[in-house]
Amino acid sequence: MGSSFTEAEIDVLEHNGTRIARVRRAEDGDHRAWFAKNNEALRSAMYEHGAVMVKGSGLVEQAGLADLAEQIGGRTLEYNERSTPRSRVTGKVYTSTEYPADQSIPQHNESAYSANWPHNVFFFCALAAASGGETPVADSSAVLDRLPSALVERFAERGVLYTRTYRVGMGLSWQEGFQTEDKGQVERYCADHGIQTEWDGDLLRTRHKRPALAVHPVTGKKVWFNQAHLFHVHALPEAAREGLLEICGEDGLPRNAYYGDGTPITADELATITSAYEETTLAEPWSTGDLLMVDNLLTSHGRRPFTGDRKVLVAMTQREG
């Protein structure tokens, strides 16, 4: 690592190119002083490994997560242009995605479909589940390396077209997605971020194109960075997919993804992408009080099913410049 930690034990977990630097902070002493002293080492570890978990972070207050995130990762972000349900806890600290406990959340880079994606994501385990509930990660360059070159070339050339239909009672409403009741504010946001809009009364359809790959500005690594596999209708279970298509039609699906030129992404291509994520996924079990810091370009994240109560909070940041 570029910088050394003070008063900590460090080891690195690794699986098929994905790494988590596990830092065990000394339990005694002020955690705020320890984080201030080790800011540079934590940033360096995120660039080197993609994900860092501080075991026994000492963090207990919800508001303290935002302060730590800003101290290490830059300014905290509002969760705008939402694609999943989550609740504001305090300030710019949110719950992790609110999906049923018995379901997995697939690997994804946070808001990779948006022009306003976070550089870092900070997860704080305020309460570990009785079992399961890990936040697995996968190295975005390792995922890229496992994909067939012809598939990568198609995505690199065409990008990804994301389509969404916002309606009440099916997926997110536009009011929840854009956090406003003002259609004019939605129009301005979309115009500023290259999103096409189409209104049908209170129903909103959007379309926008984003790159499928990215290059990390600090490490220079080329990474797989999109949510085509998560937005695509084939990401849904067969019964849910067929039901939605029957009710909404393809043009009215809550969300879907195509190649950037509008041509379909096949089910086999999506299976190949999903397999690359599965082969590279690594997880460290949560303990209450742990903090997981993720470089959002270098590393994707997800969630495993769990039993019992679980409370994981999230803050997202962007570096200046």
Score class of each variant (00 low, 15 high):
G2K: 13
V12C: 14
V12K: 13
L13A: 12
N16Q: 15
R22I: 12
V23L: 10
A33C: 01
A33K: 01
W34V: 00
A36H: 11
N39S: 13
H49K: 13
K55D: 01
G73K: 00
R75D: 12
L77N: 09
L77M: 15
N80W: 08
R86A: 04
R86H: 03
T90Q: 12
K92D: 12
T95G: 10
S96R: 01
T97D: 04
Y99C: 01
I105V: 12
Q107W: 00
N109R: 08
N116M: 02
N116G: 01
F123V: 08
F123D: 01
C125K: 09
L127F: 02
S131H: 02
E134H: 00
T135E: 01
A138G: 14
R146I: 14
V152I: 14
E153S: 14
A156W: 03
R164A: 02
S173G: 15
S173Y: 14
Q179T: 13
T180I: 02
Q185E: 15
E198L: 08
D200I: 02
D200W: 06
T206M: 03
P211R: 06
L213A: 03
H216A: 10
V218F: 05
N226R: 03
A228V: 14
F231Y: 08
P237M: 00
A240P: 02
A240S: 04
R255Q: 07
D261Y: 07
P264G: 10
L270D: 07
A271V: 05
S275P: 07
S275V: 07
E279A: 14
S287W: 09
T288E: 05
T288Q: 06
V294A: 09
K311F: 13
K311P: 08
V314D: 11
M316W: 06
E320W: 05
